[in-house]
Design a protein around this nucleic acid. Structure first.
Lengths: 196, 196
DNA sequence: AAAAGTAAGTAAGTTTTACTTACTATAGCG
DNA sequence: CGCTATAGTAAGTAAAACTTACTTACTTTT
């Protein structure tokens, strides 16, 4: 069903090497020489498979995001109402970042600053994820489960932003994430608001 | 009242130069040679006043954030209830980013990936801003204006995250920001929730 | 089975760019 | 005046990203 396997061993080793190095330090401080050494290949090979150092980063992110979307999709499918679906998305999202720090760090900290990330396939996947949430909200509005006087696109961004920022500190400073606490707080405020 | 003026002309010109260049391209694509040329000074002078290229960036951000906090403070002072205060923070924050794109781009896109940003004075200011909001929420809880079953810290992050992510796309792709629309959406959901 | 073609990988550059070092001009001040 | 501190320069260095030209090995074709 997959169009292509992961490719030649060198390519796989390079991606694995970067992924491992990001556990230890930020992308900017990782050199191509280091990546090559860690992968057990020579520097030039990186440029055989990737346009440049950043393109390698986007490709690593792409893989993580693919798995993430696949997982979210199966979780969402088990729920009926749109609010339940949103809740499971919030929880699964936080959980994924809690368990996969490399994924979270690349997505939240490393890629956003470079213009050509927004031309990458990784970013296309991010947009698809965003669209999934927009559609759930639209369906919720049609079914009368969600108020109609707000824009689905903005609500989507609000939810994603709330999740992101709530986890950001823990991701940056490598603290453990209290998934239940954050999820519970976000769900309470998103669904019922801050009023007593 | 200010401890020191902005410093020698060269220093000011360098900061202005980076600020102007960030209007056109991302920080990584800006070279120190370019900054020096734009400022009409020589490259070495940058390193007389700043530890490294990134330190210059943090210092530029620091200036913007100082002005931002000053402005927010006066706006908040005009409001009485904590929800009104939160509302004015949300609006002023969005407005500031809408009007000052360089500020927004540095803060949301450029600095977060580097570990030493979190040791900078700019980051100290960010934390102070965050604490200001936490206190407003705590006061709101004491006065019974805000529900007590959520953590003020997480709610703060939720609000900041919602603002950020709602503006992010427009900031990245240099579109105009519909301040009223975003502000209205965020206030509605934060205060009353998404339920109909 | 020999020839031809291609994919995987290497070794040794080149170029760019952030950062250094050693120096000069100028202005304030006892 | 001479001394010191400040503002600034010019030329260089080191390192890191990226290139180029080549080798090896494995398929495919005739």
């Amino acid at each position: 069903m997959k169009e292509k396997k992961n490719g030649p061993p060198g390519r796989i080793k390079i991606m694995k090497a970067l992924s491992d190095l990001i556990k230890q330090k930020d992308f900017h401080s990782i050199t191509t020489a280091e990546i090559a050494f860690q992968a057990g290949v020579t520097e030039g090979l990186i440029y055989k498979y990737f346009k440049d150092k950043r393109d390698l980063l986007y490709t690593v992110l792409e893989e993580y995001f693919d798995a993430f979307r696949e997982y979210i999709k199966t979780e969402v499918a088990t729920r009926e109402s749109s609010t339940e679906k949103l809740e499971v998305i919030i929880r699964t999202n936080i959980e994924s970042w809690s368990e996969n720090r490399v994924f979270a760090r690349i997505l939240l900290l490393e890629v956003r600053s470079s213009p050509d990330y927004y031309k990458s396939r990784a970013y296309e996947l991010v947009k698809k994820y965003y669209q999934t949430i927009v559609k759930i909200i639209e369906q919720g509005m049609e079914k009368g489960e969600i108020r109609r006087d707000i824009k689905p696109e903005i609500l989507t961004k609000e939810i994603l932003g709330a999740i992101e920022h709530s986890c950001l500190g823990d991701i940056i400073f490598e603290r453990s994430i209290d998934v239940d606490l954050i999820c519970d707080n976000i769900c309470k405020t998103v669904f019922r608001g801050v009023m007593p």
